[in-house]
Design a protein around this nucleic acid. Sequence first.
DNA 1: GATGAAACCTAACCTTT
DNA 2: AAAGGTTAGGTTTCATC
Lengths: 145, 145
Amino acid sequence: MDNLDHRIIDHLRRNARANYGDIGDDIGLSASAVKRRVDRLVADRVIRGFTVQVDPEVDGLGTEAYVEVFCRGTVAPGELKRILLNVPEVVEASTVSGSADAMMRLRSRDIAGLETALERVRDLPHVDHTRSSIVLSKLIERNRD
Amino acid sequence: MDNLDHRIIDHLRRNARANYGDIGDDIGLSASAVKRRVDRLVADRVIRGFTVQVDPEVDGLGTEAYVEVFCRGTVAPGELKRILLNVPEVVEASTVSGSADAMMRLRSRDIAGLETALERVRDLPHVDHTRSSIVLSKLIERNRD
DNA sequence: GATGAAACCTAACCTTT
DNA sequence: AAAGGTTAGGTTTCATC
Protein backbone atom coordinates (compact mmCIF):
# COMPACT_ATOMS: atom_id res chain seq x y z
CA MET A 1 0.00 0.00 0.00
CA ASP A 2 2.38 2.68 -1.19
CA ASN A 3 1.58 6.02 -2.77
CA LEU A 4 1.04 4.51 -6.23
CA ASP A 5 -1.60 2.14 -4.86
CA HIS A 6 -3.39 5.09 -3.29
CA ARG A 7 -3.37 6.97 -6.58
CA ILE A 8 -4.70 3.92 -8.43
CA ILE A 9 -7.55 3.65 -5.92
CA ASP A 10 -8.27 7.37 -6.24
CA HIS A 11 -8.49 6.98 -10.00
CA LEU A 12 -10.78 3.94 -9.74
CA ARG A 13 -13.00 5.70 -7.23
CA ARG A 14 -13.64 8.36 -9.84
CA ASN A 15 -14.08 5.81 -12.64
CA ALA A 16 -14.06 2.12 -11.86
CA ARG A 17 -14.21 1.32 -15.59
CA ALA A 18 -11.05 3.26 -16.42
CA ASN A 19 -8.60 1.21 -18.46
CA TYR A 20 -5.19 0.28 -17.15
CA GLY A 21 -3.37 2.39 -19.74
CA ASP A 22 -5.15 5.59 -18.70
CA ILE A 23 -4.51 4.91 -15.03
CA GLY A 24 -0.88 4.24 -15.88
CA ASP A 25 -0.56 7.52 -17.83
CA ASP A 26 -1.97 9.30 -14.79
CA ILE A 27 0.53 7.89 -12.30
CA GLY A 28 3.53 7.06 -14.47
CA LEU A 29 3.35 3.28 -14.79
CA SER A 30 2.82 0.92 -17.71
CA ALA A 31 -0.62 -0.65 -18.18
CA SER A 32 0.58 -4.07 -17.11
CA ALA A 33 2.19 -2.73 -13.95
CA VAL A 34 -1.15 -1.11 -13.09
CA LYS A 35 -3.01 -4.34 -13.79
CA ARG A 36 -0.68 -6.29 -11.52
CA ARG A 37 -1.26 -3.79 -8.72
CA VAL A 38 -5.03 -3.78 -9.17
CA ASP A 39 -5.07 -7.60 -9.20
CA ARG A 40 -3.04 -7.61 -6.00
CA LEU A 41 -5.30 -5.01 -4.34
CA VAL A 42 -8.33 -7.15 -5.21
CA ALA A 43 -6.64 -10.36 -4.01
CA ASP A 44 -5.66 -8.68 -0.73
CA ARG A 45 -9.25 -7.45 -0.31
CA VAL A 46 -8.08 -3.84 -0.16
CA ILE A 47 -10.43 -3.39 -3.11
CA ARG A 48 -13.67 -5.11 -2.10
CA GLY A 49 -15.47 -4.75 -5.38
CA PHE A 50 -16.34 -2.59 -8.35
CA THR A 51 -19.79 -1.12 -8.30
CA VAL A 52 -22.08 1.41 -9.83
CA GLN A 53 -23.79 4.46 -8.36
CA VAL A 54 -27.43 4.48 -9.38
CA ASP A 55 -30.24 6.98 -9.11
CA PRO A 56 -32.00 5.79 -5.88
CA GLU A 57 -35.45 6.15 -7.46
CA VAL A 58 -34.56 3.37 -9.88
CA ASP A 59 -34.86 0.34 -7.64
CA GLY A 60 -37.89 1.58 -5.80
CA LEU A 61 -36.16 1.50 -2.43
CA GLY A 62 -36.76 5.07 -1.46
CA THR A 63 -37.70 4.44 2.16
CA GLU A 64 -34.96 4.06 4.70
CA ALA A 65 -34.75 3.58 8.47
CA TYR A 66 -32.19 3.17 11.21
CA VAL A 67 -33.24 0.45 13.63
CA GLU A 68 -31.68 -0.53 16.93
CA VAL A 69 -32.07 -4.20 17.88
CA PHE A 70 -32.33 -5.28 21.50
CA CYS A 71 -31.89 -8.98 22.26
CA ARG A 72 -32.77 -11.21 25.20
CA GLY A 73 -29.65 -12.49 26.96
CA THR A 74 -26.36 -12.55 25.09
CA VAL A 75 -26.16 -13.39 21.41
CA ALA A 76 -22.91 -14.09 19.56
CA PRO A 77 -22.26 -11.66 16.67
CA GLY A 78 -22.06 -14.57 14.20
CA GLU A 79 -25.46 -15.84 15.32
CA LEU A 80 -26.95 -12.35 15.03
CA LYS A 81 -25.55 -12.00 11.53
CA ARG A 82 -26.99 -15.37 10.50
CA ILE A 83 -30.49 -14.50 11.63
CA LEU A 84 -30.49 -10.92 10.28
CA LEU A 85 -29.42 -12.14 6.85
CA ASN A 86 -32.91 -13.65 6.55
CA VAL A 87 -34.42 -10.19 6.18
CA PRO A 88 -33.51 -8.78 2.76
CA GLU A 89 -34.47 -5.24 3.75
CA VAL A 90 -31.48 -5.18 6.14
CA VAL A 91 -28.92 -3.32 4.05
CA GLU A 92 -26.40 -2.87 6.83
CA ALA A 93 -26.01 -4.18 10.37
CA SER A 94 -23.35 -3.77 13.03
CA THR A 95 -22.95 -4.67 16.66
CA VAL A 96 -22.64 -1.46 18.65
CA SER A 97 -21.68 -0.12 22.04
CA GLY A 98 -24.49 1.23 24.21
CA SER A 99 -27.76 -0.32 25.29
CA ALA A 100 -28.71 -1.78 21.89
CA ASP A 101 -27.11 -4.98 20.66
CA ALA A 102 -27.06 -3.95 17.01
CA MET A 103 -27.80 -1.07 14.70
CA MET A 104 -29.30 -1.81 11.31
CA ARG A 105 -30.09 0.23 8.24
CA LEU A 106 -33.22 -0.92 6.40
CA ARG A 107 -34.34 -0.06 2.89
CA SER A 108 -37.74 -0.75 1.41
CA ARG A 109 -40.21 0.39 -1.21
CA ASP A 110 -42.39 2.32 1.21
CA ILE A 111 -43.48 2.58 4.83
CA ALA A 112 -45.61 -0.55 4.50
CA GLY A 113 -42.58 -2.51 3.33
CA LEU A 114 -40.64 -1.20 6.28
CA GLU A 115 -43.38 -2.31 8.64
CA THR A 116 -43.43 -5.90 7.38
CA ALA A 117 -39.62 -6.03 7.52
CA LEU A 118 -39.69 -4.82 11.12
CA GLU A 119 -42.27 -7.45 12.02
CA ARG A 120 -39.99 -10.10 10.60
CA VAL A 121 -37.02 -8.77 12.58
CA ARG A 122 -39.02 -8.74 15.80
CA ASP A 123 -40.12 -12.33 15.19
CA LEU A 124 -36.53 -13.55 14.83
CA PRO A 125 -35.10 -15.73 17.63
CA HIS A 126 -33.30 -13.81 20.43
CA VAL A 127 -34.78 -10.46 19.33
CA ASP A 128 -36.62 -8.76 22.17
CA HIS A 129 -37.60 -5.42 20.67
CA THR A 130 -36.50 -2.74 18.22
CA ARG A 131 -36.33 1.06 18.13
CA SER A 132 -36.73 2.74 14.74
CA SER A 133 -35.84 6.10 13.26
CA ILE A 134 -37.39 6.51 9.85
CA VAL A 135 -35.42 8.73 7.48
CA LEU A 136 -37.38 11.83 6.54
CA SER A 137 -34.82 13.51 4.32
CA LYS A 138 -31.22 12.80 3.50
CA LEU A 139 -29.04 15.78 4.39
CA ILE A 140 -25.53 14.53 3.69
CA GLU A 141 -24.16 11.59 1.75
CA ARG A 142 -20.42 11.61 1.28
CA ASN A 143 -19.78 8.34 -0.53
CA ARG A 144 -16.83 6.47 0.81
CA ASP A 145 -18.01 2.87 0.59
CA MET B 1 -36.01 1.52 -17.82
CA ASP B 2 -37.38 -1.93 -18.59
CA ASN B 3 -36.52 -5.25 -17.01
CA LEU B 4 -33.36 -5.65 -19.10
CA ASP B 5 -32.03 -2.31 -17.87
CA HIS B 6 -32.63 -3.46 -14.30
CA ARG B 7 -30.75 -6.68 -14.91
CA ILE B 8 -27.85 -4.79 -16.48
CA ILE B 9 -27.68 -2.54 -13.43
CA ASP B 10 -27.84 -5.57 -11.12
CA HIS B 11 -24.94 -7.10 -12.98
CA LEU B 12 -22.88 -3.91 -12.86
CA ARG B 13 -23.60 -3.51 -9.17
CA ARG B 14 -21.97 -6.87 -8.58
CA ASN B 15 -19.09 -6.10 -10.94
CA ALA B 16 -18.78 -2.67 -12.50
CA ARG B 17 -15.85 -3.88 -14.61
CA ALA B 18 -17.82 -6.70 -16.23
CA ASN B 19 -17.54 -6.64 -20.01
CA TYR B 20 -20.54 -6.15 -22.24
CA GLY B 21 -20.37 -9.67 -23.63
CA ASP B 22 -20.64 -11.27 -20.20
CA ILE B 23 -23.55 -9.03 -19.23
CA GLY B 24 -25.19 -9.92 -22.53
CA ASP B 25 -24.77 -13.67 -21.93
CA ASP B 26 -26.40 -13.18 -18.54
CA ILE B 27 -29.51 -11.44 -19.84
CA GLY B 28 -29.74 -12.67 -23.43
CA LEU B 29 -28.52 -9.70 -25.47
CA SER B 30 -25.57 -9.11 -27.74
CA ALA B 31 -22.60 -7.15 -26.43
CA SER B 32 -23.39 -4.16 -28.60
CA ALA B 33 -27.01 -4.06 -27.45
CA VAL B 34 -25.76 -4.03 -23.85
CA LYS B 35 -23.27 -1.27 -24.62
CA ARG B 36 -25.96 0.90 -26.19
CA ARG B 37 -28.14 0.45 -23.10
CA VAL B 38 -25.31 1.19 -20.66
CA ASP B 39 -24.35 4.29 -22.67
CA ARG B 40 -27.95 5.44 -22.54
CA LEU B 41 -28.25 4.76 -18.78
CA VAL B 42 -25.11 6.82 -18.18
CA ALA B 43 -26.31 9.64 -20.49
CA ASP B 44 -29.69 9.69 -18.71
CA ARG B 45 -27.91 9.85 -15.33
CA VAL B 46 -29.65 6.67 -14.17
CA ILE B 47 -26.12 5.40 -13.71
CA ARG B 48 -24.30 8.16 -11.82
CA GLY B 49 -20.84 6.67 -11.94
CA PHE B 50 -18.64 3.61 -11.60
CA THR B 51 -16.75 3.30 -8.37
CA VAL B 52 -14.78 0.98 -6.18
CA GLN B 53 -15.44 -0.38 -2.71
CA VAL B 54 -12.34 -0.08 -0.59
CA ASP B 55 -11.34 -1.42 2.82
CA PRO B 56 -12.10 1.54 5.14
CA GLU B 57 -8.77 1.03 6.94
CA VAL B 58 -7.03 2.13 3.76
CA ASP B 59 -7.92 5.76 4.08
CA GLY B 60 -7.46 5.58 7.81
CA LEU B 61 -11.16 5.71 8.59
CA GLY B 62 -11.62 2.41 10.36
CA THR B 63 -13.76 3.68 13.23
CA GLU B 64 -17.46 4.24 12.71
CA ALA B 65 -20.39 5.39 14.85
CA TYR B 66 -24.08 6.09 14.57
CA VAL B 67 -24.97 9.31 16.33
CA GLU B 68 -28.38 10.76 17.06
CA VAL B 69 -28.53 14.56 17.23
CA PHE B 70 -30.97 16.33 19.52
CA CYS B 71 -31.51 20.05 18.94
CA ARG B 72 -32.94 22.88 21.01
CA GLY B 73 -36.22 24.15 19.54
CA THR B 74 -36.93 23.56 15.87
CA VAL B 75 -34.23 23.66 13.21
CA ALA B 76 -34.89 23.67 9.46
CA PRO B 77 -33.36 20.69 7.62
CA GLY B 78 -31.39 23.02 5.34
CA GLU B 79 -29.91 24.80 8.34
CA LEU B 80 -29.01 21.47 9.96
CA LYS B 81 -27.32 20.33 6.76
CA ARG B 82 -25.33 23.54 6.53
CA ILE B 83 -23.97 23.24 10.03
CA LEU B 84 -23.26 19.48 9.90
CA LEU B 85 -21.27 19.93 6.68
CA ASN B 86 -18.67 21.68 8.82
CA VAL B 87 -17.69 18.38 10.40
CA PRO B 88 -15.84 16.25 7.85
CA GLU B 89 -16.26 13.07 9.88
CA VAL B 90 -20.00 13.19 9.14
CA VAL B 91 -20.27 10.72 6.27
CA GLU B 92 -24.05 10.59 6.22
CA ALA B 93 -26.85 12.53 7.92
CA SER B 94 -30.62 12.42 7.71
CA THR B 95 -33.51 13.96 9.52
CA VAL B 96 -35.50 11.20 11.20
CA SER B 97 -38.79 10.45 12.88
CA GLY B 98 -38.71 9.83 16.61
CA SER B 99 -37.23 11.82 19.44
CA ALA B 100 -33.94 12.67 17.73
CA ASP B 101 -33.77 15.41 15.12
CA ALA B 102 -31.17 13.69 12.98
CA MET B 103 -29.21 10.50 12.64
CA MET B 104 -25.61 10.69 11.45
CA ARG B 105 -22.96 8.17 10.52
CA LEU B 106 -19.45 9.27 11.48
CA ARG B 107 -16.15 7.85 10.28
CA SER B 108 -12.78 8.60 11.78
CA ARG B 109 -9.27 7.27 12.22
CA ASP B 110 -9.84 5.99 15.73
CA ILE B 111 -11.86 6.51 18.90
CA ALA B 112 -9.96 9.71 19.69
CA GLY B 113 -10.90 11.12 16.28
CA LEU B 114 -14.51 10.20 16.95
CA GLU B 115 -14.39 12.01 20.27
CA THR B 116 -13.11 15.27 18.82
CA ALA B 117 -15.67 15.07 16.00
CA LEU B 118 -18.44 14.59 18.56
CA GLU B 119 -17.19 17.57 20.55
CA ARG B 120 -17.39 19.66 17.41
CA VAL B 121 -20.93 18.47 16.69
CA ARG B 122 -22.05 19.26 20.24
CA ASP B 123 -20.57 22.73 19.98
CA LEU B 124 -22.53 23.52 16.81
CA PRO B 125 -25.38 26.04 17.07
CA HIS B 126 -28.80 24.55 17.88
CA VAL B 127 -27.31 21.20 18.96
CA ASP B 128 -28.36 20.27 22.47
CA HIS B 129 -26.89 16.81 22.91
CA THR B 130 -25.99 13.60 21.06
CA ARG B 131 -26.37 9.88 21.64
CA SER B 132 -23.72 7.62 20.11
CA SER B 133 -23.49 3.96 19.20
CA ILE B 134 -19.95 3.04 18.28
CA VAL B 135 -19.66 0.23 15.76
CA LEU B 136 -17.97 -2.82 17.27
CA SER B 137 -18.15 -5.13 14.28
CA LYS B 138 -19.86 -4.94 10.93
CA LEU B 139 -22.23 -7.88 10.45
CA ILE B 140 -23.91 -7.13 7.12
CA GLU B 141 -23.10 -4.76 4.31
CA ARG B 142 -25.30 -5.22 1.26
CA ASN B 143 -24.25 -2.41 -0.96
CA ARG B 144 -27.06 -0.33 -2.30
CA ASP B 145 -25.48 3.12 -2.57
C1' DG C 1 -27.81 -7.99 -34.38
C1' DA C 2 -23.57 -8.41 -37.22
C1' DT C 3 -19.01 -6.68 -38.87
C1' DG C 4 -14.32 -5.25 -38.61
C1' DA C 5 -10.69 -2.09 -37.26
C1' DA C 6 -8.80 -0.03 -33.24
C1' DA C 7 -8.17 -0.35 -28.47
C1' DC C 8 -7.56 -3.11 -24.57
C1' DC C 9 -6.42 -7.06 -21.59
C1' DT C 10 -3.31 -10.42 -20.12
C1' DA C 11 0.33 -13.63 -19.47
C1' DA C 12 4.91 -14.84 -20.49
C1' DC C 13 9.39 -13.14 -20.77
C1' DC C 14 13.06 -9.71 -19.99
C1' DT C 15 15.40 -5.89 -17.35
C1' DT C 16 16.44 -3.38 -13.28
C1' DT C 17 17.07 -2.67 -8.40
C1' DA D 1 13.36 -11.83 -4.88
C1' DA D 2 10.48 -7.94 -6.07
C1' DA D 3 8.77 -4.58 -9.17
C1' DG D 4 8.42 -2.47 -13.66
C1' DG D 5 8.72 -2.73 -18.87
C1' DT D 6 7.92 -5.03 -23.42
C1' DT D 7 5.91 -7.93 -26.52
C1' DA D 8 2.32 -10.66 -28.73
C1' DG D 9 -1.92 -13.11 -28.84
C1' DG D 10 -6.58 -13.17 -28.04
C1' DT D 11 -10.49 -10.52 -26.57
C1' DT D 12 -13.33 -6.47 -26.20
C1' DT D 13 -14.98 -2.16 -27.58
C1' DC D 14 -17.37 0.78 -30.60
C1' DA D 15 -18.73 3.05 -34.88
C1' DT D 16 -21.00 1.61 -38.85
C1' DC D 17 -24.01 -1.05 -41.45
